[in-house]
Design a protein around this nucleic acid. Structure first.
Lengths: 198, 198
DNA sequence: AACGGTATACCGACTAGTCGGTATGTAGTA
DNA sequence: TACTACATACCGACTAGTCGGTATACCGTT
């Protein structure tokens, strides 16, 4: 298990190590990246890395935690605003697109290497993802229950579709492209809300 | 370059090797799978593998080729039917969901390990993907031009959303789940067409 | 039919190199 | 002295790919 790496408040040294790990994992993949490359880029030594982390896998888990934690917290905040279903859906989509784009390398590592976590951590990963999914589903479902949304497809499918685009963003989104994250998030929201109009 | 592996008509031995490679890459990932594991599962020897393939990478490319080739051909066939835009979109979505689910391990390997192809092959991969994307986009756009579809979002975004779900299927779809591929494909089509109704 | 020549298909022991992780040392601080 | 925070040298395990060799199929010639 990670020592300092598992805590929320990380030392600057640990942060530097994680930052270079994120870059390298995103560029080359987890397995193809050597521990030596990580420490070289961070300009530290192997001793330092193994002082803060117990294994290479810990780096992966640390990366995952920071992203999903942020997104789940944001979902809770938006849900707590008490907006109508449509405004909530839009706010959620714009937010998740923005946070994903802001942290594109983390997101890339995520959806590509999550299955390499050991059983326990992979379960934690899926639980957190499921939590997000479920939170989003409840928003859609409440809109359908109130009649604000149509029932053209089950709420579950709506979420799979919406999360599908978002999860694919690391594959095709280019920060130097024409669309800002907000524009893209709003377009996705336009589309989803158009499908859900009664 | 692959010798027999690059041709369309593959020997039974080469097929067996590819089949076990697909399974193992889907389970463990490309880097984490050893050549020895592949030959053990296929019940052949290393000599046999390196007789048919020049490198481990060739296995990845062979896997990729067979799936994308099938899907691009199917897209062309459907487009050639001359159906209306809505029926074409539905046919495409049902088809792509079905072929993806039918070959879930290949699809899983695909979206996870594509970036590990060398530059030349990765370019070929992207060109084929782009071809599919573009074919789909033209269908949507022609529907928008004729007024059959709304312009709620650009055709490009519609395709990104639709392909997003499909590409994520290997992550969450369970063949033993409640929904058949056809049901799911139709649901996705329902959603997309609902969003595009004028 | 018998034979020599040659290409293809396959075998599996071997190696050179790599990688995650560890053992040990040391400098600063309390 | 005891402890933290690193640095450095090193180890054992493992892997992609190779290479010398064998078995079998095919083919023109006599």
């Amino acid at each position: 298990m990670a020592r300092a790496g598992a805590r929320t408040g990380r030392s600057p040294m640990a942060e530097r190590i994680i930052a270079s790990a994120v870059e390298l994992f995103a560029e080359q993949g987890f397995d193809a990246t050597t521990v030596q490359q990580v420490v070289d880029r961070a300009q530290v030594t192997k001793g330092a890395l193994y002082h803060y982390f117990d294994a290479k896998d810990d780096l992966l888990y640390a990366i995952y935690q920071s992203l999903i934690g942020t997104q789940n917290a944001a979902l809770d905040e938006i849900a707590a605003l008490g907006l109508g279903a449509a405004d909530t859906v839009r706010a959620v989509l714009v937010n998740v697109v923005r946070t994903t784009v802001e942290r594109l390398p983390e997101a890339k590592v995520f959806f590509r290497e999550a299955h390499k976590l050991d059983a326990e951590r992979h379960a934690a990963f899926r639980a957190d993802r499921r939590r997000y999914h479920e939170g989003f589903r409840l928003i859609v479902e409440s809109g359908q229950a109130s009649g604000e949304f149509s029932r053209v497809v089950p709420a579950d499918t709506v979420v799979q579709i919406a999360m599908g685009v978002v999860n694919q963003l690391p594959v095709w989104y280019r920060p130097d492209g024409a669309k800002s994250p907000e524009e893209l998030g709003n377009e996705i929201a336009d589309f989803v809300l158009a499908a859900l109009r009664p």
